[in-house]
Design a protein around this nucleic acid. Sequence first.
DNA 1: TTGCTATTTGGCAAAATAGCCAAATAGAAA
DNA 2: TTTCTATTTGGCTATTTTGCCAAATAGCAA
Lengths: 101, 101
Amino acid sequence: MNQSTSGIAPPSKKQIEAQSAVFKALGHPARLCMVHALGQGERCVCDLRDLVDLDMSTVSKHLAVLRNAGVVSGEKRGNWMFYRLRLPCVAGFLDCLQKHL
Amino acid sequence: MNQSTSGIAPPSKKQIEAQSAVFKALGHPARLCMVHALGQGERCVCDLRDLVDLDMSTVSKHLAVLRNAGVVSGEKRGNWMFYRLRLPCVAGFLDCLQKHL
DNA sequence: TTGCTATTTGGCAAAATAGCCAAATAGAAA
DNA sequence: TTTCTATTTGGCTATTTTGCCAAATAGCAA
């Protein structure tokens, strides 16, 4: 037999999809590493490439995943593309993880 | 040419791995759905199975992913296995996502 | 214009993940 | 003991993800 269920409404399927896309985007070591760096300010793709030591095209695709999930945003200035963190809550959550893991 | 880099020490590779395991665990609609439910209190596997409508064995494997990442913990009482949320910061982060997505 | 630099996109093979069924396990009940 | 119930594990295929190379794109410089 099952437990009785709570009366609080769960998030919609759309919300769950959007939220899990954010988590999925952060759920890769290279992407999380880049997000950590972006937490300290904007970076160009070349900086992030040096950080994670992957092919430039791979880094670009990782950034596309983060962009599509709404985690970061990019702005082109001259030849460079600068990325910045778009979700303010990420930094605080990372701090909390640091403590509890 | 690259930007100048900050002097703040980045997290260790081990920390990055542990943190991205948490995000990866949360980065699946069914698992996130279950975590939402667990945010309101412990649930047995059968309750979670009803929630996400997947095979019992699939639910069990999803819970193993969450357990291995440190997101939830399980306790057996009688025939039932009860899972509960182990990371207090998840609920607050989900609230923040709700606002900013 | 041509050339150079930074980034993105297409395509492919390798690796990881998801979900099912069947079988194993553990504990309660008869 | 045997049986039933809840959960986990093994194994398998289908799907998704990752990361490289090559090619395309965009903007600056000459």
